[in-house]
């Protein structure tokens, strides 16, 4: 048996191929599945160990990024998704997928998995969509199964609505304390660790996200979402400055996240391939 990954597709999701590919590179078996196939019961989420909501422009993001897809999942897959998390199975949302998980209330989420929206991702302060590389730093002591042992990572952001905000600032402290503010933008010149609540200037933080937040996890550490694209740095030759670096070619920095999830699933569900 191998670890099976459900990668959602359809309605304008567009990073499904590379997201499926990185899980395969990490040793799992991934399947690209149209959302409607799960909603109509043709395929059961239960048969998978990991679920990924990839990046894209679901429904064109015309009513706010991720909102319509979030509604489709909230109305159509509520119980399946809840059971998935209760069964200790990991979920990742990347870029538009992160926006979907936040708008449907699964992130930052709560212990009861109540699907209550408590945060949002809004327009970048720059006022425009942007594709540029950033440096991320991970929270050392987080329960997030995706980020175990990670320190820093260079990956691209590609979004116009990536500013993480909430309407209740006390929640930020709560999430910070509970290890949920799991990844932030940092200045690569500063020595590790350097993550800080103080707002970094543009473009080090590409969107003026509060506390430089790039991604969060839920209280269980199983559900994780981030705006940047780790799957876009799956090989060394995709880096922003790889032609300047003296490196041995192979896996890119982004792969560590996917290895973590696949290894977690292997041990959690006793899978030896």
């Amino acid at each position: 048996m191998t670890v099976k990954v459900a990668v959602l597709t359809g309605f304008g999701i567009n990073c499904d191929r590379e997201t499926a590919a990185v899980f395969e590179m990490a040793g799992a078996k991934s399947e690209r599945i149209h959302v409607n196939k799960i909603v109509n019961g043709e395929i059961k989420l239960d048969d998978f160990h990991i679920m990924a909501v990839p990046g894209g422009f679901s429904f064109g993001d015309h009513l706010g990024s991720g909102r319509l897809m979030g509604n489709r999942l909230r109305f159509g897959l509520r119980e399946q998704v809840r059971k998935f998390v209760k069964d200790k199975k990991p979920i990742i949302g990347i870029c538009n997928g992160f926006q979907v998980l936040v708008k449907m209330g699964l992130l930052p989420g709560d212990d009861d998995i109540s699907f209550e929206q408590t945060a949002s991702l809004t327009l970048n302060d720059s006022g425009h969509y942007e594709d540029r590389w950033v440096t991320l730093e991970f929270e050392k002591d987080s329960q997030c199964i995706w980020t175990k042992g990670l320190t820093r990572m260079r990956v691209p952001v590609r979004h116009g609505e990536g500013k993480f905000v909430t309407n209740n600032k006390n929640l930020l402290d709560k999430w910070d304390k509970s290890g949920q503010l799991v990844v932030r933008y940092v200045d690569p010149i500063d020595t590790y660790p350097s993550k800080s609540d103080e707002l970094l200037p543009y473009p080090l933080s590409p969107n003026a996200s509060w506390r430089n937040i790039a991604g969060v996890c839920d209280p269980s550490g199983l559900v994780f979402g981030l705006m940047p694209h780790p799957e876009a740095n799956h090989s060394t030759w995709l880096g922003a400055t790889w032609t300047r670096e003296n490196l041995e070619h192979g896996e890119g920095e982004g792969m560590a996240l996917f290895h973590n999830a696949v290894n977690y699933a292997k041990s959690q569900f006793s899978i030896n391939d």
Partner: peptide
């Protein structure tokens, strides 16, 4: 140029901008 996504599909080897400051 930066407001176009030039990296979706995870295949971009030589990008529109390079160098130490990208």
């Amino acid at each position: 140029v930066r407001s176009y996504d030039h990296e979706v599909i995870g295949q971009s080897v030589i990008k529109p901008f390079g160098g130490v400051n990208h």
